[in-house]
Design a protein around this nucleic acid. Sequence first.
DNA 1: TAATTTATTGTTATATTATAACAATGTGTA
DNA 2: TACACATTGTTATAATATAACAATAAATTA
Lengths: 132, 132
Amino acid sequence: MQKQNFLTKNQQIVLDLVEKSSQPLKAYSILFNVQKKGLKAPLQVYRALDKLVEIGKIHKIESRNAFVACKNSNCVVSNATAFSICESCEKVTEINNSKLSKYLSNFEDNSGMKYSKYNLEFFGLCKKCKNK
Amino acid sequence: MQKQNFLTKNQQIVLDLVEKSSQPLKAYSILFNVQKKGLKAPLQVYRALDKLVEIGKIHKIESRNAFVACKNSNCVVSNATAFSICESCEKVTEINNSKLSKYLSNFEDNSGMKYSKYNLEFFGLCKKCKNK
DNA sequence: TAATTTATTGTTATATTATAACAATGTGTA
DNA sequence: TACACATTGTTATAATATAACAATAAATTA
């Protein structure tokens, strides 16, 4: 059996929901929203999320325990992610800046460690909240 | 009452433990280890951790839900943190690279957002694990 | 096609991480 | 001393995530 290159029913249901949302969704909020589609247990959601993260269709916002769809149409693997997070309204935006990603992907220090992946989260106030 | 500029007993107990550890500690592992010192409930640990993170004495490794002592003696506020994490042995090291921190602290994009804080986590294999 | 293998599913239970609420105590300031 | 307010201790519970295992489905190969 070769590695699955399509989405299963549960994965598709979860992905559809996350893609429809403009903001990160929490696992149990996803669960609540897909119960009418037959996903009744947390594990069904977590398993779908795990796979979707693995193949890069969604990202986990670690500091928020929440999930967003990847906005880069070319996103195949999620080995380089950067987000901005508004600490007031919690709006999260994926940062798509080639200079930044190039800089971080090529980053090396004297630890002898080879970095294959990174996740960066910026915090601050978004335009709207700044002007309040 | 002015803002506290010293550590309370509970905070000091938790900090001592985290500083002694060479690796990140989980909250409930901290709890287990400080029970003989009188901290019996999770909240006592979480409250101490919250304050210690706030004043920059320790950092939270978000992707691991674990806490490490800040290794920069000059660390006052923890608004700029970067770590390397070995995905095999889970060794975590705080990255202290002024070029990197300068680059990220000055990072701006066209979102109109002012970034006051960031957290970066690199993943890969450490020297030891790479050679296995 | 049948047998084999492997991935995925459904399900129950439980582990892990974190916070709400509130009374009691301590500490700085007026 | 009286007050304001931060911190503490405590119980209960919320929120996040995984273990274990039987059942089902899909790909492989004989």
